[in-house]
């Protein structure tokens, strides 16, 4: 559970989208393994939820770099 949470906090949007794309491609190939399909579906839904959460909740953080003139 903690690992999952940790994973969510560190969600790499680009990687998540790449994974989603791979899952879509898997289904598009017309694979017939139902068990794997369900696993992939679950994974896709988790990714989508995490992405949505990230985009809807997180703010942009701005830090000013101070040591420019040192």
């Amino acid at each position: 559970m903690t690992e999952k949470k940790h994973k969510k906090e560190k969600l790499d949007v680009s990687q998540a989208f790449a994974e989603l794309e791979a899952i879509t491609a898997w289904f598009e190939k017309g694979e017939t393994d139902l068990e794997l399909g369900l696993k992939k579906y679950e994974q896709a839904m988790e990714l989508a939820k995490a992405l949505q959460l990230k985009l809807e909740q997180a703010e942009n953080k701005i830090n000013e770099i101070q040591n420019l003139n040192k």
């Binding site: 949007v13 985009l55 909740q57 997180a58 703010e59 942009n60 953080k61 770099i65 040591n67």
Partner: peptide, 28 residues
């Protein structure tokens, strides 16, 4: 977009010292 981390390198953008500031910022 959300969840971005932005580091602002504050620089002079015109006048004396501006090019130096820009170079320092890019280098840093």
């Amino acid at each position: 977009w959300s969840g971005l981390e932005i580091d602002l390198y504050h620089v002079k953008v015109q006048g004396l010292g501006a090019p130096e500031d820009l170079i320092k910022a890019i280098t840093l």
